[in-house]
Design a protein around this nucleic acid. Sequence first.
DNA 1: AAAAATTCCGTGTGCGCACACGAAATTAGA
DNA 2: TCTAATTTCGTGTGCGCACACGGAATTTTT
Lengths: 361, 361
Amino acid sequence: MTSDNRVKIADIAKRANVSTGTVDRVIHNRGEVAQKTRDKVLAIIKEMDFEPDILASTLASKKTYRFASLIPAATNDSLFWHQPVIGFEKALKQVKHFGVAHQAFSFNYFDKESFKAAWSELLESEPDGIIVAPSFADVSADFIAQTEERGIPVVFINMNVFNLPKLSFVGQDPLRSGMVAAHLLDFGLKQKGRILIVNIMSEKGGNIHLMSREEGFRNYFHGNGFSGKELFTLNIYGNDPTQIDQMLSEVLSPEGAEEKVAGIFVTNSRVFHVADYLKKTGEKHIRLVGYDLLEVNVDHLMNHHIDFLISQNPIGQGFRSFMALFDSMVLKKNIQKYQYLPIDIITRENIDYYINNLTNE
Amino acid sequence: MTSDNRVKIADIAKRANVSTGTVDRVIHNRGEVAQKTRDKVLAIIKEMDFEPDILASTLASKKTYRFASLIPAATNDSLFWHQPVIGFEKALKQVKHFGVAHQAFSFNYFDKESFKAAWSELLESEPDGIIVAPSFADVSADFIAQTEERGIPVVFINMNVFNLPKLSFVGQDPLRSGMVAAHLLDFGLKQKGRILIVNIMSEKGGNIHLMSREEGFRNYFHGNGFSGKELFTLNIYGNDPTQIDQMLSEVLSPEGAEEKVAGIFVTNSRVFHVADYLKKTGEKHIRLVGYDLLEVNVDHLMNHHIDFLISQNPIGQGFRSFMALFDSMVLKKNIQKYQYLPIDIITRENIDYYINNLTNE
DNA sequence: AAAAATTCCGTGTGCGCACACGAAATTAGA
DNA sequence: TCTAATTTCGTGTGCGCACACGGAATTTTT
């Protein structure tokens, strides 16, 4: 019930013939300590394996950590981004006692200017740590320069910009996730057959992600020798249903096609557009794989119009990003620079356990 | 940097014209308070939305929580059980500041007596909370009666015993996981084909799990109408490789078989035995699905002798079980009684992110 | 109505640490 | 050598809460 013999600051102090104040000064590198005594205290700290009591510590120092996040606003075009916020909130709930606060900023996914403006606003709030989805690499570079100068740690969520300094990246490996999709379709299809890769994207750029997924998808087939599958790509810009339908029918309709398409890989969450089309045309033999557990996608999955969805675990991404800042800044832990989240394969049978999952609650 | 206006006990006290001591007494239901003032204080607490500061609270009350775990020892027959311990340790690391300690007990997976003995030893240590894998339901029932009497909360990990009282169950839904396996094989096989279900189990019982998985597997096919698949079961008792090989060959060899078997579902982690056999006989066209990321299984997965593995996320199970006790006892949170973990589908391409995964670190 | 028994309540101390303040020790200046 | 400037250090207070102790208020007993 009550056992404890953790070594505390007072123990160190006694052992070193100094006061607790002095020990405290060396612990926090606050100077005003003679080199000799500093060394002695340091040695004793190590020898006695002293670890400060975080509870007492944060209780005494009324310090507050203010974290700021900057991610796209959740709209019809980017429903995905509603989820990471939930992850932020879960994490916050778990660590708020330690004096952590959170302020959220957002921007228009397709508007570089709004991204820039939000970044500025965020910096003006002078946060102690930042989580950002660096949609526009060039703009991000400018601002990261500033955070570097001010010594504010930054975590990248969902998308990475490799050449920029960062505390950590939290997200998925797009190449690998493309390979997973490829494996699934390969597994489900007969030996031969054409496979269509569909990129539904914005004209305004910021689609590096999709390219990597396609690359991974193609790599899978190349890596596994000739498997009798023929791959071809359809790029669709914008998300006008009518236009999408038309472009799909050109490629899929009997007249247009050479050999019949057996499977389709949509490189992002817009997969529901393709499912809509297949449903509408009564096509039932084309295997379909896409991304993310949007409600529309889940509906199609349950109704057999989508075979597999790959989840990016957006809640987990939010949670992990937040905790990365917390672990690093509050607990002074060392953080893994690349935190690749699992590439979850979702079917009708296991989806219950991935929706609103509490994995990281 | 320093902003805070959380309401504290002193605020309540002042507002109620009583001392902090009195407020403290009502908060902890420690009696010795007139009903009238008790009501008043309670009202004010609610009105001001007071939440005690957990940090200060645990700091002041030198209370210690001792959690005990009881799971099978990790042996060749149950390698799986090495993982939950890692989850326990991760959880402990995260919450040890709150005065949480952990003592591990283990037993022989196949030996009911050792289970009984370990239970007794555990109870003698008078823990404040318990995590147990209730391998033998009848024995567990006896001991659960005792924990109930003493008011010690118990969490069941990995396997559930439905009619026993518990704080929470943490594990997977075996029925559903069987369905997932079925979906995968169904997806990967031509229209027709025989599918073999293999249960490799101990003679000594404790295999309810496997039965449920088989049931789920069969339900999938029944639920989806006649899909042209014929299912049949092979039960193997014991884990002698020679015997396993022989029994498999009887069922799979050209002479023995009526129609060729197209896919095999092994209902637990012993799937490597079947993979060994397939590898040995050079069979490459039989699809194979099984459970758990044991090293031997992972090897077969990487070498294409196993198509999919279903992971039970054992580390996560350990972590969640531990946190269930913590959340309930220390944080006084309400706990979900059934915590079903995701049924993770593992392929060569995504396995990296499930092995030693830090999802819950 | 006074004494005894109960019920109810306020005060004080300490948990382990952070940090301000000022004093002591040391060094520099004259 | 004595004072002034620096460097180095010890002490005290408080963070928000838990809990022991003893005293005040109330009720019961005689």
